[in-house]
C-alpha cells in the first residue's frame, strides 16, 4: 500500500508543486506592494485561492480516470495488488492532496494577514486581542439571545473547515465509484451524461437516507463540533458504501479498453 501511495504522490506532485509555490510567494509579496497594486493583488489572490481549490479537485479526478481507465490503467491494473488496495491508495492520495491544498491556502492567507497587520503597525499581541474580542462578541450575542455558550469563534472556523473537508472527501469517493460504474460493460455509451445523472441521484439518496437518520443526535455540547462530528460519521458511512461497491464492480466488471 505504501509503495502504491508513494507512486501516486510522485505522479501528482509535479502538477501541484509550482502552483503552491507561486501562490505562497504571491501571499508574501502582496503586502509589500504599493496601494494601487494591492487593490489588484487582493482580488487576484481571492480568485486564485478558489481557482487552485477547483483545479486541484478536478485534477485529482482526471488523474484517477487516466490511471484507471486509459492506457495507464494497463500498468495500474497489472501491478500485483488487489483492486481494493489499488483503490484505497488512490483515495488516500486524493485525501492527502486535498489536505495539503487546504493547508497551503490557509497558510497563504495567514501569512498575508500577518504581514498586512504587521506592516500597518499592529503587533501580534494586539491581533490576538482582536480575535479574543471577536470571540467575546459572539458570546455576548448568544447571551443576548438567551443561549448558553453553544459555540465559539474557534469551533466555528475549525468546524467549517472540517465540514468542507468531509464533504469533499465523500464527494471524491462518490465520483470514483461513478467513474468505475460508467467504465463497465453495463454502460457502453453516454458515459458522461449517465455519470452526471448518477452523481445527483446517488447524492439525493444519501441525503434522504443518511441525514434524517442521525442529524438530531447530540454527541458533544458545542453545536459546531457536533455538526462536524455527525457529518463526519455520515461521510464515513457514505465513503465506505461507495468503496465497497467500487471494489465489487472492479472485481467483476472491470474493462480496460
Amino acid at each position: 500500500m505504501l509503495k502504491l501511495l508513494k507512486f501516486e504522490l510522485l505522479g501528482n506532485y509535479r502538477s501541484y508543486f509550482h502552483t503552491y509555490l507561486f501562490y505562497l510567494l504571491f501571499c508574501i509579496i502582496a503586502p509589500f506592494a504599493s496601494n494601487a497594486l494591492q487593490n489588484i493583488f487582493i482580488p487576484v489572490l481571492g480568485i486564485s485561492s478558489v481557482a487552485i481549490m477547483i483545479s486541484v479537485f478536478i485534477n485529482i479526478i482526471v488523474n484517477f480516470c487516466k490511471s484507471m481507465f486509459t492506457k495507464e490503467g494497463y500498468l495500474s491494473h497489472t501491478l500485483p495488488y488487489k483492486g481494493s488496495v489499488l483503490l484505497a491508495s488512490k483515495f488516500l492520495s486524493a485525501i492527502l492532496w486535498l489536505c495539503i491544498t487546504i493547508l497551503v491556502l490557509i497558510g497563504g492567507i495567514l501569512i498575508l494577514s500577518l504581514l498586512v497587520t504587521l506592516r500597518s503597525g499592529i503587533s501580534v499581541k494586539e491581533l490576538y486581542s482582536g480575535l479574543e474580542m471577536a470571540n467575546a462578541f459572539i458570546r455576548y450575542e448568544m447571551a443576548l439571545e438567551g443561549f448558553h455558550e453553544i459555540f465559539t469563534l474557534k469551533s466555528m472556523i475549525s468546524s467549517g473547515l472540517i465540514l468542507s473537508l468531509e464533504s469533499l472527501i465523500s464527494c471524491y469517493m462518490l465520483i470514483f465509484m461513478i467513474a468505475i460504474l460508467v467504465n463497465t460493460p453495463i454502460i457502453r455509451s453516454y458515459k458522461t451524461p449517465i455519470g452526471i445523472v448518477l452523481f445527483f441521484l446517488i447524492t439525493m439518496i444519501f441525503d434522504r437516507i443518511g441525514i434524517p437518520a442521525i442529524e438530531n443526535i447530540r454527541l458533544v455540547e458545542d453545536v459546531m463540533y457536533n455538526a462536524a462530528l455527525i457529518h463526519g460519521i455520515q461521510s464515513f458511512i457514505q465513503c465506505l458504501i461507495c468503496y465497497l461497491v467500487s471494489v465489487f464492480v472492479m472485481n467483476r466488471y472491470l474493462e480496460i479498453n
Binding site: 491494473h77 497489472t78 501491478l79 500485483p80 467483476r252 472491470l254 480496460i256
Partner: peptide, 25 residues
C-alpha cells in the same frame, strides 16, 4: 489473462486460479 477484462463467459485459470494479485506477480 492479465485481469484487464473481468466480464466474460467461461473460465480463465492461471496456475489453477482466476486472474488475481498472485497471478499478476
Amino acid at each position: 489473462i492479465n485481469g484487464l477484462l473481468r466480464s466474460y463467459q467461461g473460465t480463465c485459470l492461471i496456475d489453477g486460479q482466476l486472474p488475481n494479485e498472485v497471478s499478476k506477480s
